[in-house]
């Protein structure tokens, strides 16, 4: 009975939201209400999820696990940010400076590590995947795209070269669109299966 109720609720809400995209004017009030509820629920779910983060670090701290010191720092940072944000709001200049001068540089350094890892992984590509058409094509495409986007070639005054470069620059876009179309199709089928309760990630089946 509970599962039937859940399936019916999913179907009604899902179809209403879907119909709302096409009959926006007619369904606008209902759609706004449902989307507001959804945002609220997701917000609450996110907040509860943060509880898992706190619980995990507290457990690590109390069990005196290895790396517990880092958990202490994470918890202190969390409590400080939460308290400061609640009392002074995230728009406070100090809070903004804190984000700009701590979080952004830390994230940038992580991106720098990622850039190095990407370069290293690219160098190992042939070793990992072998001399296949796909791996050679991938490497060639990546290098070509890099060279073209470095603006190394000056196409002014040479319409043929300009057209060729525009064509080559368009190829990744076409590939990307192809992948996104496939993804959209896959996503559509997953969505419809959940909507019709053929799949129930929230329960059995």
């Amino acid at each position: 009975m509970k599962k039937m109720l859940l399936a019916a609720l999913t179907l009604i809400v899902g179809l209403t939201v879907l119909a709302g995209y096409f009959f926006r004017a007619e369904l606008s009030p209902v759609l706004t209400l449902i989307i507001d509820w959804g945002i609220l629920l997701l917000g609450v779910a996110g907040l509860i999820g943060l509880g898992y983060l706190v619980r995990m670090h507290l457990a690590r701290l109390f069990r005196r696990e290895k790396g517990g010191f880092y958990s202490l720092i994470a918890l202190l940072g969390f409590v400080f940010s939460l308290a400061f944000g609640l009392v002074y709001s995230p728009h406070h200049p100090f809070f903004r400076d804190l984000i700009l001068n701590v979080q952004v540089p830390v994230e940038a350094s992580l991106l720098a590590i990622l850039a190095v890892s990407l370069l290293y992984a690219s160098l190992r590509l042939i070793r990992t995947r072998g001399w296949t058409l796909l791996s050679v094509g991938f490497l060639f495409g990546a290098v070509l795209s890099l060279i073209l986007n470095l603006a190394f070639f000056r196409e002014e005054g040479n319409p043929l070269l300009a057209e060729m470069i525009a064509f080559l620059r368009g190829i990744p876009m076409a590939g990307g669109r192809g992948i996104l179309l496939g993804m959209a199709l896959g996503g559509l089928i997953v969505g419809l299966r959940v909507l019709f309760s053929i799949n129930r990630p929230y329960g059995e089946g």
């Binding site: 190992r124 990546a142 993804m183």
Partner: peptide, 17 residues
């Protein structure tokens, strides 16, 4: 793009579904 060069067992795009 990032994982293609490192991960052998990789499903991409619509394959994941």
């Amino acid at each position: 793009a990032a994982l293609f060069s490192t991960v052998d067992d990789l499903l991409m795009g619509e394959e994941i579904f």
